[in-house]
Design a protein around this nucleic acid. Sequence first.
DNA 1: GAGTGGTCTAGACCACACT
DNA 2: GTGTGGTCTAGACCACTCG
Lengths: 259, 259
Amino acid sequence: MGTAQLTAVPEPKYWHLRTVLLRAIDSEFATGEVIPNERELSARFGVARATLRQALDQLELEGRLVRRRGIGTLVAAPRVGVPVSRREEGWPGGSEQSWQTVDCSIAPATEQLAAALNVPVGETVYTVRRVRLNQGQPVATESLHVPDSALAQLPEIRLSGTAGEAADQGRAVLRRLERLTVEGESRAVELGVAEAEQAALLQRPPGTPVLVVTSQYASGGRLAALAVATYRADTCRLTFGETGLVEVTPVPSAVRTAS
Amino acid sequence: MGTAQLTAVPEPKYWHLRTVLLRAIDSEFATGEVIPNERELSARFGVARATLRQALDQLELEGRLVRRRGIGTLVAAPRVGVPVSRREEGWPGGSEQSWQTVDCSIAPATEQLAAALNVPVGETVYTVRRVRLNQGQPVATESLHVPDSALAQLPEIRLSGTAGEAADQGRAVLRRLERLTVEGESRAVELGVAEAEQAALLQRPPGTPVLVVTSQYASGGRLAALAVATYRADTCRLTFGETGLVEVTPVPSAVRTAS
DNA sequence: GAGTGGTCTAGACCACACT
DNA sequence: GTGTGGTCTAGACCACTCG
């Protein structure tokens, strides 16, 4: 008991390591720089590689590190702010260049989907899949579900190009949606992980943490469309700026006052 | 090459395990039920315990499982929808019972905080810390930063009770804020991890994933307050319902059409 | 081929909750 | 005390990127 009261609260090694590494990457490394490899770091700190990796896992979840197989571990760039609230961004017709239609499928509503769209089971539902790009990199995927009955009052659109192509069909659905007057929209955000399909579109391995944004669009007193978008949690900060009155501050994630 | 094309894409074991376990908890277990312990599951599936734990980690991140030391691993309840957009919820004065003031500190703005609030370094800033409760359980913590200059035009409030108490002081600041007319607010959501202080308030271990909500409130053409709230990512689904026209659907997280 | 991160193993001990 | 999840170890091999 001679050395008592040292680290009276035995904080886990990996958590302490995270703190040490966080300070290091904040002060000694620049964005995009590679930090020493895992075997060297684990040796330097006198821990097993698995323990060191636990610390790196945390920092990666926080978006501070990026690990690339065969390359190394890099200091991540600050997260990019991605607007999701304004209709111009989330709804077809706005800054179109940020969304890119992948394909479209037509199928009768499953029980689950029918309940979410508030339509009878078996009703025809269009599903448009899109990818959102930011500076050339995919940051989100989206599945936009539109029941056929919501499009019924809208004029049909015939495409000039090769009809029948999946992506073209998706674009046709989007064009018709543009003519819809949206009276209300509500959104929900939660944490999820990307399954194989979405992970591939995001160019990330399965299990990648994502922010799942569920958007409901109301028109004519009913639910006209349901969008489920998954944003890369490591690189994205979702912004809901109703009014652009105040510029978005960088990231005061750990704002502390000396109390 | 006799057994070729079997599992041509060698999916990691832990990912496959996750899929199997997910199906199991969806079909064979009820909310709150404990699933077999890790040592038994790892034996049953013929994998090391660390590999099994990797699968459980994923499911816990998705909010499907809750692990309690000394107890076991339980099937988690569906995430609760937590409104964060409407002023009545996030701004003082609304449904007061959901937020509980912890304490308040007064300090000159640090460089970082000054930049975020757009005030000169050293200006007096009130910081009110609150905890948001949902059905008795803490779901979020918040630090609300208010520069003194934003309160200058508001009448002072003298408390009837024991003045000087930290929580009372916080409530006094909140009461004054209620009288402020807010013209604009913008929000950002990103993924983070809870540090020691916040983790304790949320009754979770450090490193717990959280959804960090940064809110800016504008008044009189300037930034009047900055709130940084951390919501438990495992139990919360943040809802941004501008208009309550459409009820929020359960969770169509993996809505798929047979394509 | 050399170096990197990703996966997996088979153990060990600890902290905690119940009985 | 017994059983649970939490941490940690010291290895091994694989998949990928590069020169």
